[in-house]
Design a protein around this nucleic acid. Structure first.
Length: 954
RNA sequence: GGCCCGGUAGGCAAAUUGGCAAAGCCGGCGCACUCAAAAUGCGUUGUUUGCGGGUUCGAGUCCCGCCCGGGCUACCA
């Protein structure tokens, strides 16, 4: 730990002037990086368009591999960041050696808060700092030797990119969701088709009047309500500390902003929304058509939160009160109802005086229902989400003074207001069935309400509410009896009965809400929209895209004290009246319009970037259809298409990956892409973590100067305690790729990161272990090139039989491991082969060349260098990956393990083709077996020829 | 509280999916090279898979219960 930069930096010893050292590695690496760049080695031809290579045939197969693109932070990279980039590079290079046309590039996600906040501090334009950060990052990543097609790189802030982000927004704005289309699955369609349907009368006009009788403003209002991107006055997450509103996905469970950890308040504001809820079913159902980790699929399913159940209407004096329930089978056990404090019917449900049945526990000591409800509502609204959490789960609530009638049995049941029912889910009202719901049980106990079991718990059940399977009980009226039915059958029966009575119907509810799409920030894409004098939004015509950000006097939105809930968002763009006010001719002659002063959220740019890699220079279309079909189109029935391999962290499981799927499906519906999903295979890489050390004052100390002694760790002689977690400047445990390039070279760094363990696991960084990978490369080098003379020392003579067997077994294993992205075990096999070659007097050329080719995906520079020294002038990146000759995979003899009672007692060398009977006989003859049987009789003999025999004594 | 991962030598990890436990790397130790060290090389060292039960001829692997670490989620009706 204490000698950071000394280990591998030594100059070559005099007796080994041509050793592969960090310095030599650096020279080789930079030379090959230059050559790759000049020759455009990694350019992937398109089937048509400017990136095509007319006259040359496209490879038979294609492979599109992608990383979750980076945000170019000013903080710089640490060794954990490139892990995924190396993995995609290794796999892409492997596929290229299999003959695939590999598309791999890296773009930058460059809008966003950190650049804006830095701009606010320094007064520099965020574009300037962002571009500087991108340049730094490009330099650091180039040094890794990634096989990217550099013609396809871009940043989300490029005007040529923003133009298409805005164009897609307008596509979404100019469409509606036809739920009846495609046999009820639904599909986005252009808004013009909706207008035509209203016009022709094919679709009834909301409000009942004829389309032609409505004026233009009224027509537009109706159309606007159907758009997939729409302006809505609705409760949103307002974050005064950030000065912006946030999407649900950006608010943590305890009601704070994911960025900055400021309190978030619900406020009704006029904002852009995306109708992602229209796609809820397809977003869930299509998860089965893609190859993603189950964990991520589960997270998306949970986030969308589809629940099937029924809506049921209970009669009250204030009209029908509709509830959503997933357990309509328990309707006979509903003994009270609860509405959310914000429920619109609360006032109407509050009579002027308490009814005689009201128990003291229900009324909280208040003189009238109005007093009680008002007090409770005030209390509930004053509570933040945090307070609700910290106050525990104690159920609170108050009786409204009204009763409702249970439609199945006519029972009069009291209606309560309580904040354990949320307005944002279902109908904001529930029927409470304490017998089968834990929350209702708790509330019932506290408020002295009756409890009726309608599902018979098992005999040994000693809990309170019973939520499991069981036969229905106490569930019959004059017309229907559920008694004896299981939960599923009972649900179906009662739903049919409710529907026949008009008292309810089966339905599906989602937790997913529409996506709040405006932010009151500067550093994002402006909305390509203007408003007229009626405040109705109009699309900016295509030829005026992109709408650029104006220069502003101050990049910051107005922010407030974090707790100032009653404040208004004030976006930076609103302070540029000469930009906001604009004269345009949108078809009615030149008129004054007002621009939208919000910007899009950071997610917009990452919602479609996979498509831009395909056709990065296109100014006429989003993406050429032929090009999209080639790289991302579906292959065969039921295939959803998409990127062949997408590697990134699991932290985007819901946000980015859900939004991107949504946009992609809209583009599919509108016919702009042939794939239904953006990412066919997703792989979550683990994280590289690091130890950090804290001294007695709680301060972090530089990790690279901490010494480990007998029973602890010390820094400058003082004991420190070890923590495990992220790597970063503030924890003083950061190791950068630049450190690695300098001390070991990029190839060693790549080998080390890939050999640390399986790619999907997180693991600790250990600088001192990196030397193992350098030693491996040094040994390979030494097997090919003399350290004394620099001359190639491989022999032309064919390999001996043993070497050949080891070689071909290694090739076979490495292929299997590479295919499955188990690079750690692939490297281990190559090390074994190399260790064998080291023992030979002369390394045979056939073995050396195969090894060099096999290691090329992981250590490409040193492989290229050795390949070229072995006499091949062409780069090896498209050289076929070695293929094992099956002749050398079959063994002449196999070691058969002979067990007695499962314990290994003997080993036999037998031919692989030996029969079961022969092997059984052979095993029973074994002296070792007879010895351990020690006269006991043999009960059975399990034979798994040719590898195993197990003798079972009686 | 619920769900999902993981627990194998001092550390990171393999184990063809129920069939020889520990491949490979780091570390430790010894030796060679060196005036000495570093670097490098050669050799060597590691023990029953977190705990308890079960299934099986046979369990790191499957089942049940528990312990520890990590992640996601959290009154969603």
């Amino acid at each position: 730990m204490s000698q950071t930069h000394t280990s591998a930096m030594s100059t070559p010893a005099d007796d080994a002037p041509y050793r592969y050292t960090a310095e030599v590695a650096g020279q080789i690496e930079q030379r090959w990086q230059d050559r790759w760049e000049h020759e455009g080695t990694f350019n992937a031809p398109n089937p048509s368009g400017p990136l095509a290579e007319p006259g040359t045939d496209l490879p038979a197969k294609k492979f599109f591999v992608m990383d979750m693109f980076p945000y170019p932070s000013g903080k710089g990279l640490h060794v954990g960041h490139p892990l995924g980039y190396i993995a995609t590079d290794v796999y892409g290079r492997y596929r290229r050696m299999q003959g695939d046309n590999v598309l791999h590039a890296l773009a930058y996600d460059a809008f966003g808060l950190p650049a804006e906040q830095y701009a606010v501090q320094t007064g520099q334009h965020p574009r300037k700092t962002t571009e500087e950060n991108i340049a730094t990052m490009r330099r650091q990543l180039r040094r890794l030797g990634l096989a990217h097609d550099n013609r396809r790189t871009f940043a989300t802030i490029d005007p040529g990119y923003v133009r298409w982000t805005q164009w897609i927004f307008l596509q979404i704005f100019e469409s509606w969701y036809d739920e009846a289309a495609d046999g009820g699955r639904g599909r986005a369609r252009p808004i013009a088709e909706l207008v035509a349907a209203f016009q022709s009368g094919e679709r009834p006009v909301p409000g009942g009047r004829a389309w032609g009788d409505l004026d233009a403003v009224e027509q537009r209002r109706i159309v606007d309500e159907h758009r997939l991107a729409y302006v809505s006055e609705s409760p949103v997450n307002w974050c005064p500390g950030l000065g912006t509103v946030l999407a649900n996905e950006e608010v943590t469970a305890d009601g704070r902003s994911e960025r900055g950890n400021f309190p978030v308040f619900k406020r009704s504001l006029r904002q852009w929304m995306m109708r992602i809820t229209a796609y809820a079913d397809r977003l869930i159902d299509d998860l089965e058509r893609i190859d993603w980790p189950d964990k991520v699929k589960t997270m998306q399913r949970n986030w969308i939160g589809r629940s099937t159940g029924a809506n049921v209407r209970f009669a009250t004096d204030a009209g029908d009160l509709e509830v959503f329930t997933t357990r309509p089978d328990t309707l006979f056990g509903a003994t009270f109802m609860v509405v959310a404090p914000e429920h619109p019917l609360v006032d109407a449900l509050t009579p002027s005086s308490w009814p005689s049945e009201a128990k003291p526990a229900w009324i909280g000591g208040h003189a009238t229902p109005a007093d009680a409800v008002a007090a409770y509502r005030a209390e509930a609204s004053a509570k933040t989400e945090v307070e609700r959490q910290t106050e525990g789960r104690e159920k609170t609530g108050v009786f409204t003074g009204s009763f409702a009638v249970n439609p199945v049995n006519g029972a009069r049941i009291p209606v309560f207001v309580a904040d354990y029912v949320l307005m944002g889910y279902g109908t904001g009202a529930i029927m409470a069935v304490p017998g089968q719901d834990e929350r209702d049980w708790e509330f019932a106990t506290r408020f002295e309400l009756p409890i009726i079991r309608t599902v018979q718990p098992p005999a040994d059940f000693d809990g309170e509410a019973y939520t499991g399977e069981g036969p229905a009980v106490n569930s019959a009226n004059d017309e229907i009896s559920l008694d004896g039915l299981g939960v599923t059958e009972a649900k179906a029966a009662i739903i049919a009965w409710l529907e026949s009575k008009g008292a309810g119907e089966g339905t599906i509810t989602y937790r997913l809400r529409d996506w709040l799409f405006s932010r009151q920030r500067y550093w994002g894409e402006p909305f390509p929209v203007v408003y007229d004098e009626n405040d109705q939004p109009f699309a900016i015509p295509d030829h005026l895209l992109p709408v650029d950000l104006p220069e502003v006097p101050d990049y910051s939105p107005r922010t407030y004290p974090p707790d100032a809930a009653d404040t208004e968002p004030e976006p930076p763009l609103a302070r540029v009246p000469e930009w906001v006010e604009v004269e345009l001719d949108l078809g009615d002659g030149p008129k004054r319009y007002r621009r939208d002063t919000n910007t899009m959220p950071n997610w917009a740019g990452s919602c479609w970037y996979e498509l831009r890699y395909l056709d990065p220079t296109n100014t006429e279309r989003l993406v050429d259809p032929e090009v999209e079909r080639y790289w991302m189109g579906p292959h065969g029935d039921g295939d959803a298409g998409g990127v062949d391999l997408y590697i990134g962290g699991v932290e985007h499981a819901v946000l980015h990956l859900l939004y991107a799927r949504f946009w992609h499906k809209v583009l599919f519906d509108l016919g702009h892409v042939s794939s239904e999903e953006p990412f066919h295979k997703l792989f979550n890489q683990g994280y590289i973590q690091a130890y950090a050390y804290v001294d007695s004052r709680g301060q972090y100390v530089p990790a690279d100067q901490v010494v480990e002694d007998g029973d602890g760790y010390t820094f400058e002689g003082e004991p420190v305690t070890r923590e495990y977690g992220k790597m970063g400047k503030s924890l003083k445990n950061m190791v950068t790729p630049d450190d690695m390039y300098r001390d070991y070279g990029a190839d060693t760094f790549r080998v080390y990161e890939m050999s640390m363990g399986p790619l999907d696991l997180s693991r600790p960084w250990e600088t001192r272990a990196v030397v193992g990978s350098l030693r491996f490369l040094q040994r390979v080098w030494r097997n090919v090139v003399s350290e004394q003379t620099g001359e190639v020392v491989v022999g032309a003579a064919p390999a001996d039989d043993e070497t050949r067997r080891i070689l071909h077994r290694t090739i076979d294993a490495v292929r299997t491991e590479m295919e499955a992205m188990r690079f750690n075990t692939a490297i281990a096999r190559m090390i074994e082969l190399n260790n064998h070659l080291t023992k030979l007097d002369t390394v045979p050329r056939e073995a050396a060349e195969a090894l060099v080719l096999m290691m090329a995906p992981v250590a490409p520079h040193v492989a290229e260098e050795l390949w070229s020294r072995l006499g091949h002038p062409e780069s090896l990146v498209r050289e076929p990956f070695p293929v094992a000759d099956p002749v050398y995979l079959v063994e002449e003899t196999v070691t058969c393990v002979v067990q007695v009672a499962g314990k290994v007692r003997d080993r036999l060398e037998v031919p692989p083709s030996i029969s079961e009977d022969d092997l059984r006989a052979l095993a029973l003859e074994s002296e070792a077996v007879q010895r351990s049987l020690d006269g006991r009789p043999v009960r059975t003999v399990v034979v798994r020829a040719p590898k195993l025999v197990n003798v079972v004594p009686g």
